[in-house]
Simulated assay, not measured.
Amino acid sequence: MFKKIVLSLLIIVGISLRAQSAGINFQKIDLEAAKKIAAKENKLIFIDLFTTWCGPCKLMAKNTFTDPRIGEMFNKNFVNIALDAEKEGINLAKEFKVVNYPSFLFLDPKGKLVQYDFGYYNAEQFLGVGASVLGKKMSQSGKTLDQVKGKMVGDKIDNFNAKDHLGNTFSSSKENQKLVIVFIRGQWCPYCNKYIETLQKLSPELKSKNARLVIISPEKPEFIEKTLSKTKTDYTVLYDEGYKIAEAFDVLYTPDSETLNLYNSKLKEDFADSRSDHSGRLPVSATFILNESKEITWRHFETDYKKRASVEDILKNLN
């Protein structure tokens, strides 16, 4: 009987721990400690300012902060603390002139306000709030669309590794062929899907030109599966985790806040959850040809995602 009780307690504790870990991990630290962690881990600070008598505060804690998607975004990108605005958070409430609850302070590692929000949000809505904050962070530290220039003809590209949707590792240095590198924005982009279908016309010509076409996507393997399903392509599609390949080719940028808000509201999880973070960063839809030494011999770089390299131009420059 005793063993059964212990086993039951362990199961309950295990379920409880899983439930807690699924949502936001609020650390029991003060703002100064949060600043140090944020600076060290390159994160922002999220402060939930609540009161014990606030109904919407309790609903946020029960329904929104426990959502696994919220937990994934906030635990990865923020140092999270929850403070009672009438106790340990009273000075912060005065400093930021908070009169509505719950109130949400998003601060940089120095304690400067990045964004302020208040009121009840369901999980879907709060993902949008988080994405908006992260977009502001990236716009401060990342490149805008007009700042990316793309690597130039003659530049040599260092070895890059990435996995396809099956988990197979691609290593550019092991390829003895010319490489046609094509960047796409994701399976949600109809222009990208149409372009991949068009590129199928290249397939018969690539072998005779000792070339291989590789598609680089910022999306996770499960979303790459959607790209393959929509386009019926046989080309290798690689997951550019952490945008490392896009950065190496200097095609990575952060859309403006208006575009980010549009994508997050219209595409929802197809945009917010598809990539390795929630920054909203995307690659320019560029095409590069690398020779056997992995030097760029030709490129098509156009910031307008509707304009892509033609099949004819790619073939002509593979000679």
Rank of each mutant, 00 (worst) to 15 (best):
N291H: 09
I29T: 02
I15P: 01
K35E: 00
G242A: 09
E225N: 15
V251R: 04
F74N: 00
C57H: 04
E222C: 11
V214Y: 07
V129L: 05
F223I: 01
T198N: 15
T233H: 10
N264M: 15
T303L: 09
L7C: 05
K94D: 09
P218E: 02
K194A: 14
E175Y: 10
Y191N: 07
D304T: 08
S139F: 13
N161D: 08
K149H: 13
S274Q: 10
K220S: 07
W188S: 12
E222I: 13
V214K: 14
K28A: 07
F170M: 06
D277K: 05
A272D: 14
F271N: 03
L9E: 06
L83E: 00
S265W: 05
D117W: 07
R212E: 03
I47A: 02
E269P: 13
S132N: 11
L59D: 10
F118E: 12
N176A: 15
Q27W: 06
S208H: 15
S279T: 03
A123M: 01
L202F: 11
V148K: 03
A211E: 03
D164F: 01
L31R: 11
S293P: 02
C57E: 00
K268Y: 05
D277A: 06
T231D: 04
S141E: 14
S310P: 05
